[in-house]
Write a protein that binds this DNA or RNA. Structure first.
Lengths: 336, 336
DNA sequence: ACTCGACGTGAAAACGTTTACGTTGCCGCC
DNA sequence: GGCGGCAACGTAAACGTTTTCACGTCGAGT
């Protein structure tokens, strides 16, 4: 039925299949007029080359795979958007596989992608070195995103959590704040850990006299609320709060507001992520914006390079995508 | 290099390639012990069948394509999650292509998917009947999502905007509200139009004496804020606002709060979508929750059926995914 | 004028599978 | 004991491309 093959086009244009292939791909080794005739025939028959056959002989799928964890919210959406954009620009398709709960599921998903993709974008909490070595064909170009594995032969790319956190602390210090509380993320969470590290570093280098004050949290709004109460109970009272993410900052603000604390005058509050909600709370939340789409795009770029030039592959590099300070009313009365 | 083919396995297991294929796929027509030996050999060599070769001969890609508009926010993320989950359950891969701005780009993306997918999930503002007829191979199973095309030979699935809006109006009426303002979405937007329709229907059937009051909006928070001011100027003053989406409802609430209006006592406010922010504004926003992930899953299910049984394909059906009323403090003082 | 190279074109091999079709050997039945 | 049937297995064709190679043919250089 409808499946018109290259042979049909060849017959229609009164040439051999080889010429059709040449005319439609490179265009070299075939007269302009012949090429023209072939193109017309192809258009007339609505010919579309059979992708699988081409993959088989070419060894190129023109597809990249993205293996992602079970993500909620707009982080995922932004990431895919960035990846898709960069992939489209390179004429590559995108095969995604999200929500694999355990390491086995991830491994299965990874195996299933075998041979369907030219390269892999991998972001998974299960992706430790052993896992990779076990499940990754070592000749498949791969870029790791937000992984704890630096170097180790793989390309990696992640958000500059340290840098962002340092920016925030510097901003708070510049605002004259002395006692800055940090609300931690869930234990073991890499992003949270890096943000904490940035906080410590910035304090150590810019204000060695300022105390390091830690409160527990788990990225949930509730835990921020509880931390807020703890802040209220402290003596001397802190004059700034830096939460490891926006949701906790928002929870904390709720607690402070209930206690009648004036923000930012009495206590400044800041978060990390720049979730959409951040600009709508009162006062609007100062936070760190991370360009997630760019994380995706850059990872895709890196992967593209690796695919196009497998020989001079830049392995072991670990790039970071910049984080940006967004000042709003919760830390600066000046900021409208 | 490493690419081990079925021949290698055959040699290793001392059988023919046909037996390997049989053992690894159906398992029929081959002794248990031979099968065992073959499996062992395959495992030893880390054999993975070449996907492209299999597609070529089988005419099945085990992949479905999702063509999506340029979406922001968690709607997209939820949708993909739902699709991916259902696809995984059926052992299908997911090829996504988002962010195609104009009809040409969409058409190109669609053509490029040709032959790589067994079926298509399509959500696109450009997908009118002519577009589909022009660019869709008519033998490719397809499910349309959130489209204005009902019937017309295609399967379609969309959010029950009417139903949701009716639920909300009924809720407001039940709360004793008489003068309910509706804040419209952008002109031409399908979801917005259906929600408005639901509002009109519910009023007409349950409270024919209540006035139909419309205010313009564009789904943006700003437009909700402006609408809020208009509400304040109305005499007699409305006692409830139903915004076509949450962001406008939030904007409206800001305007009312500034004017010292007590919510929900003086004016109740409600939205549509149940964005994450909805539960964090004060008072928490009553809204309609639409299970986006389920939209994706159900679409995938429908498509799966169509693929598995192309003969008895259910074409022309138009299913709707339910919307759910979520009552919070902005319409009910009782709701904590 | 003859050779040589370049160029356009066609025939055929190759890619790795699945599957239709033979072939073999075994078992049971008359 | 021969024969039919069946199950296990092998051979080879087919899927639709790309690409290598060979074969002209034509133009230019000696």
């Amino acid at each position: 039925m409808a499946t018109t093959t290259i042979k049909d086009v060849a017959r229609e244009a009164r040439v051999s299949v080889a010429s059709v292939s040449r005319a439609l791909n490179g265009g070299r080794g075939v007269t302009a007029e012949t090429s023209q005739r072939i193109r017309e025939a192809a258009a007339r028959l609505r010919y579309m080359p059979h992708a699988a056959a081409r993959m088989l002989i070419t060894r190129r799928t023109n597809t990249i795979g993205a293996l992602l964890p079970d993500l909620y919210g707009e982080f995922f959406s932004e990431l895919i958007r960035g990846i898709d954009l960069a992939a489209r620009a390179r004429g590559l398709h995108l095969l995604v596989s999200s929500s694999h709960d355990d390491a086995d599921a991830a491994a299965a998903a990874l195996r299933a992608m075998q041979g369907r993709v030219d390269g892999l974008l991998l972001m998974s909490p299960h992706a430790d070195a052993a896992f990779l070595h076990q499940n990754l064909p070592h000749d498949l170009p791969t870029v790791l995103m937000n992984t704890r594995l630096a170097g180790d032969g793989y390309c990696a790319l992640s958000v500059d959590n340290d840098g962002g956190a340092r920016l925030m602390v510097e901003h708070l210090l510049a605002g004259g704040h002395q006692r800055i509380v940090f609300i931690q993320g869930p234990p073991g969470n890499r992003d949270a850990g890096e943000r904490e590290l940035g906080y410590r570093e910035a304090l150590a280098s810019h204000a060695p006299d300022s105390p390091v004050i830690m409160l527990r949290g788990d990225f949930g709004e509730e835990s921020g609320y509880r931390a807020g109460h703890q802040v209220l109970a402290m003596r001397p009272r802190p004059d700034a709060v830096f939460a490891a993410n926006d949701m906790m900052a928002i929870g904390c603000m709720a607690a402070l507001r209930e206690a009648g604390i004036c923000m930012p005058e009495e206590i400044a509050v800041s978060g990390f992520d720049d979730v959409p909600m951040a600009r709508y709370v009162t006062p609007p939340l100062t936070t760190i914006e991370v360009h997630i789409a760019e994380l995706g795009s850059q990872a895709m770029e890196l992967l593209g390079e690796q695919i196009d030039h497998p020989d001079q592959a830049v392995t072991g590099v670990h790039r970071r995508v910049a984080a940006k300070l967004v000042v709003r009313g919760s830390t600066s009365a000046a900021a409208r």
